[in-house]
Each structure stands twice: as structure tokens, then as C-alpha cells.
């Protein structure tokens, strides 16, 4: 008994520095966030009390719109990005040109990691009010500075991300499966319906989830591009943090953060089991 316990403890010992750092650097902020979200500030000089007031407030206007807009934007980008990314990956991977495949995959690696303010600048130069495309084609101002403009810009990193996510799954579709299906009398469409798409589904949904998370968490691009004209929850939180709002809203910002984490966790809860399933299929 004692010896089993001893080896167990000894086995975990090398991990203790890591666990300690995670507890301090991640655990403490997480606890503070949760505590703050459930703390109702008292009068000046008085200690706060615990309650659901902040969380309730964060789910009412004007905050609710921002949360919902963020979710909507992320959902639009995730679905559109997943579809176009898959089409692009398929078009590239079935190409005979190895150079095309290599360069698109490398470019996807670069663009999937390209975001933040630099991304906003590049699109402002293109489609902003004095952007080259806007002026050359006489397009009206404000083209980029709305919900759909933001979606267009987010797709710039979302589609490449999807290409990277779906490419291994597409490559995992074995030629034997198509041939076996054909041998059993299936048409191309029947192959995709009964085998191809079901096998890709976990990777597709996994991609949707990743893309959703990427857009949902994005802050800098939107802040630099649209400011407050598209109400997003990340910008509301940032405003509270940098003191751009009335006093007393800080705890609501904490509650909003909690809302975001809950949304992200719900979405992730879909992803993880799916990912496990697809990795089993695509050995």
C-alpha cells in the first residue's frame, strides 16, 4: 500500500513545477474572474456580497446584443470559412501540381496565424473608405465597417485555418474506399453521401468549432477596424478594462468574460469527442 502510494507520488513529482505554475498563472486569475463575476459591489468602503446580479445584468441589454452579435459573427465566419476552406483544400489537394499544393499549404500556415491589427490595416488599404478597390470602383464608403465587412476580414485567417484542419482529413480518405464503393456499384455522389462526407464530418465540425473560437476571441482586428460600430462582447470587455466605461461596470465585465468562457466551453464540448472519433478513423 505505502509503496504503491510512494511510487505514485514519485511519478507525479516531475510534473509538480508545471502544476504549480498552472495553478498560479491560470488558476488564480480564473478564480478571481469567477469570484468577481459573482460579487455584487457594496457601497464605497463596504465589502461586496455574492450574488447573480452581474451575471444577470450581463445577459440583459445593452450587453446581450453584444454577446449575441459576437456569437452570430463567429457562427457566420465559422460556417462560411469551413465550407470555402474545404472546397479550397479539396481543389488544391486533387491538383496534379505539387507546387500548387505545397505553396497553398504554406501560405495557409502563414495566413492562419495572421490577425490582429496588421490584418485590419491590409483590408483598410484595400476596401476602406479610401482603399484602392473602393476608390477605383467608386464603391460607397463604410463598405468594410459593418458586420459583413468584419466577417469578410475574419475569413482571411479562417479559411486558411480550415484548409490546414481539413487537409489531413481529406488526405486520409483512402483511394481504396472510393474504389471499393465503385466496385459495389456506387456513383461518385453515392460515395460522398455514404462514405466521404460521414468520414469527413468530425473534421468538418472540428474545423467549424476552431473557426468559431478564433473569431469569437478576436479583438484587435475589430477594435482597429470598426470601433464601436459593430457591438462585440470582446470590445465591451476591453472598454471596461481600460476604464472607458462608467465605474461599477467592472464586475459586469467579469460576468461577460464568464459568459464568453461558457460559450467557448459549450462549443469545445462538441469538438473534443468528435476529434477523438476522427483520429480513430483516419489512422
Amino acid at each position: 500500500m505505502t509503496s504503491a502510494r510512494f511510487t505514485r507520488v514519485k511519478g507525479w513529482a516531475p510534473a509538480s513545477p508545471l502544476l504549480l505554475v498552472v495553478a498560479v498563472a491560470f488558476g488564480i486569475p480564473a478564480v478571481m474572474l469567477a469570484l468577481g463575476a459573482f460579487t455584487v459591489p457594496g457601497a464605497p468602503g463596504e465589502p461586496g456580497t455574492y450574488g447573480l446580479d452581474n451575471v444577470a445584468a450581463s445577459l440583459r441589454e445593452p450587453y446581450l446584443t453584444k454577446l449575441l452579435t459576437s456569437i452570430e459573427l463567429s457562427a457566420v465566419v465559422a460556417v462560411a470559412g469551413a465550407l470555402t476552406g474545404t472546397l479550397l483544400a479539396h481543389a488544391v489537394l486533387t491538383s496534379r501540381s505539387a507546387a500548387l499544393r505545397e505553396s497553398v499549404l504554406s501560405a495557409s500556415g502563414v495566413l492562419a496565424n495572421f490577425g490582429g491589427v496588421p490584418l485590419a490595416f491590409i483590408w483598410i488599404a484595400t476596401l476602406g473608405n479610401s482603399g484602392l478597390v473602393t476608390t477605383s470602383f467608386g464603391l460607397g464608403p463604410g463598405l468594410l465597417y459593418n458586420f459583413w465587412g468584419l466577417a469578410l476580414v475574419y475569413l482571411y485567417f479562417s479559411i486558411p485555418l480550415m484548409v490546414l484542419v481539413i487537409a489531413p482529413a481529406l488526405e486520409g480518405l483512402r483511394p481504396q474506399w472510393r474504389e471499393a464503393a465503385q466496385g459495389s456499384g456506387a456513383s461518385v455522389w453515392q460515395f460522398w453521401r455514404h462514405v466521404g462526407l460521414p468520414v469527413l464530418t468530425p473534421a468538418l465540425l472540428g474545423g467549424v468549432v476552431l473557426l468559431f473560437g478564433g473569431s469569437f476571441a478576436a479583438y484587435a482586428t475589430a477594435a482597429a477596424m470598426v470601433g464601436a460600430s459593430v457591438p462585440l462582447v470582446t470590445m465591451q470587455i476591453a472598454d471596461a478594462l481600460t476604464g472607458n466605461v462608467l465605474v461599477g461596470f467592472e464586475n459586469v465585465a467579469l460576468a461577460l468574460s464568464l459568459d464568453m468562457i461558457v460559450v467557448a466551453m459549450l462549443v469545445m464540448a462538441v469538438y473534443l469527442p468528435l476529434q477523438r472519433r476522427s483520429s480513430r478513423w483516419l489512422r
Binding site: S108, A167, P168, L173, W177, R178
Partner: peptide, 8 residues
Amino acid sequence: PQSSARAV
């Protein structure tokens, strides 16, 4: 980016 064998 992952490896890139030619897909089906």
C-alpha cells in the same frame, strides 16, 4: 501546415 501527399 501538415504533410501533403496527393489526396484522393
